[in-house]
Amino acid sequence: MNGDRPDVVERLDEATAALDALRDGFAVEERLDDVLHRLAESAVTVVQDADAVTICVSPEQPRTAAASDQAFVTIDERQFRANRGPCLESARTLTAVRAVVGENHDIWPEFEECAAQHGVRAYLSVPVVLPTSDRSDRQHMGSLNFYSYTAAAFDPFDEGLVRLFTTAASTAIANAHQWQRARDHVKHLETALVSRAVIEQAKGILMAVHSCSEDEAFDMLVKRSQDDNVKLRDVAKNLIDSLT
């Protein structure tokens, strides 16, 4: 390791401090893209020779969710359109992929051309995976992509630091997914409760108008729903609206 590079302890301390700040700043209700943007900003300050960091998510339809410099999103998108490049190679193999621009034109010509236009000399992509109970079946969630203007950038120690950030990214993405599922569940429950209240009110109206039982009133609503091919809740709401 070059003598002008920070020593190992200092670099580890920087990474630990950055990750601690991220952990303490994570808010449950924070948008995923906002969390990942802060992660990208922290990673680019800690990883030696990293001039920009992007974070891609949604492997099936990849998109760049965060970037320390928006100019580099173009390189990500060029890989996505071509369906090849070191980012996608990392995603498919679930291994870190390092590329020196100018050495892979036959393999990733689109990436090589776009990266060269931006002055990029070295690139490192590390997959973000969610561990499962079966270690052989890890869920790929995205990638951290590091860009450098220095061809010799990203030594093995850098890769080790990057893996710390991929762990933070996997936690952020998993938490965001869990939060979204919880929000969706609550929304479904709220909709169900509102529907129940509307139906009960409509039943009460029918019971008063027709002097019928609760079951008979409900059967009337169900029959109208089937005859008109309209949801039961909407039938009940229309009945209430017609009287008010």
Rank of each mutant, 00 (worst) to 15 (best):
V128M: 08
E113R: 15
F146K: 02
C114F: 00
H118Q: 11
P109T: 05
P127G: 02
P156Q: 10
S143V: 15
S136R: 10
P109S: 11
N145F: 05
V129T: 07
V129P: 02
A122I: 01
S148T: 11
N145H: 02
N104Q: 12
T150Y: 15
G102D: 07
V100R: 11
G102N: 11
G160P: 02
A116F: 08
L130H: 08
Q117M: 12
A115V: 01
A99H: 01
N104M: 15
S143I: 06
M141S: 05
G160L: 13
A116P: 00
I107C: 15
L161P: 01
E113G: 06
Y149F: 11
D155A: 05
R138L: 11
V100F: 09
P109H: 13
P109R: 06
Y147M: 06
L130C: 14
S143F: 02
A116Y: 04
P127C: 09
G142C: 11
R138D: 02
F146M: 11
Q139F: 08
V128I: 14
E103I: 14
L124V: 03
F157R: 00
Y123N: 09
G119F: 07
I107A: 14
A153V: 07
H118S: 07
Y147D: 00
E159Q: 04
A99R: 03
S136T: 15
L130T: 10
L161I: 10
D158Y: 00
E110F: 04
H140Q: 10
S148Y: 06
E113L: 12
E113N: 15
A122L: 06
A152W: 14
T132Y: 07
H105C: 06
E113D: 11
E110G: 02
P156R: 07
C114N: 11
V120Y: 04
S143A: 13
A151H: 15
P131Q: 12
I107D: 14
W108P: 01
E110C: 05
A99C: 03
S133I: 14
V129S: 03
V120G: 00
